[in-house]
Each structure stands twice: as C-alpha cells, then as structure tokens.
Amino acid sequence: MIELRDVTKLYPASSRPALDKVTATVDDGEFVFLIGPSGSGKSTLLRLLLREDRPTGGTISVGGMALAGLPRRKVPKLRQRIGCVFQDFRLLANRSVAGNVAFALEVLGKRPAEIRRDVPELLALVGLEGKAERMPHELSGGEQQRVAIARASVNRPPLLLADEPTGNLDPETSRGIMALLERINRGGTTVVMATHDDTIVDAMRRRVIELHDGTVARDEARAVYGAGR
C-alpha cells in the first residue's frame, strides 16, 4: 500500500532534515503505529503521503501511485484513496453530523440520491445512528472523532491515515475509537496511525514504526510503545 524508499525531506529553514533516508513498506490491510517524539518526522511523513508536500529526495508510492511524477491535477485522485483524520476533528461547526458527511460527498460531485443513501450508511459504520441531526458542539469528543472518521470514509478509501486521533480524548473514549479503527482495518483498510499514546500501542500489539530525528529507529511487528517500558 505504501512504499517509502530513502525518503528525505529538508525544510529550507532547518539545517537538520525532517526525514532522513526513510525506507519502509506497508502492505495492504496492515495496521501500523507511527510513533516518536515531537519533531521526529511523523507529521512530515503523513504530509508527504498526502502529497501536501514533496520529498527532497527518495521515492514514495501510495496505492500504486508514484508520487514523484504525479501531476497536480491527479492529486485529488490520490487523496480520494486516502482517508484522513486528525486530533482536532476539523468538523464544520455550522453543519449537523449528517451535514458534515454530506458536505464531503457533495464536493465530490455525488448525486443527491447517492448522498441520501450513503450518509446513513457511513454514520452506521461509525456507530452514530440516531445522531444525524446533532450539531458538532452537542457531541462528545469521541462522537466528533467518529463523525470525522465517517467523513474520511466517504470514498471507501483503501488507506486511512490518522494523526493523533485520540490526542484529545480520554482513555475510555480512546478505546472506543481504537475499536472502530480496528474494525475498519478488519474490513481490509490499511491504517497508519501516528500517536503518542503508549497505552493504546501497548494494548493493540500491532506493528510499530518508530521515528527518531527523521530516521527509522525501530520497525517491529506486534510491538509495544517503548522497549524500556
């Protein structure tokens, strides 16, 4: 699903590369934790996968698309294959739960009939049946993240990138979100999740890629957060 080869990213203002010859492969259907301290390059890596930014060196391919030569007009095609959720949910405050999901379908040019069919399905997927007409501020953090996940799933993407999705949530709620991500993963979606949450990583026992100063410090299957813990 993802192939990184010697990926290097230099920001003009910084002397040290944000990513330094990172090589890694993520297979279809894998669940991978991306860990490491702040500034280790996690966010940079996710940005490169979304083609928000281009690497200084090395090659990246996502879902069979080589990002290096990808023309700008094909970038939307790439992003339709990647779902994305964040720590801060990024919901539209003036739209209901259903409205938020519908907005994503609308901007993709879906027909009203499709939208009426897909929105309830997506909300059922994340366990928000019956809350379609709520506004985001009426929801708990966990529920808001579920809306974000529903929205990230409008294209039924084969890859889901999650950047600290539980960063704003209490442990109990976080477990619920992790259960949801795991369920999505069991459905065949590859999940890459950047996180600081050692409890979750330790409990899940999935593959861990640890970045440190822009390099891969550790890449282990069924691993825990820190070797010393």
Binding site: R73, P76, R90, L92, V107, L108
Partner: peptide, 17 residues
C-alpha cells in the same frame, strides 16, 4: 479554511475548491 481543508482531503478537484 475548514471547508477548503475538507475539500482537499477528500479529494475534491481543484476546480471545485
């Protein structure tokens, strides 16, 4: 910016955005 961000992330075309 939130709307625009959502459009970009779900892969709306540049034109739509």
């Amino acid at each position: 910016r939130t709307e625009v961000g959502v459009m970009r992330l779900v892969g709306a075309t540049r034109w739509t955005t």
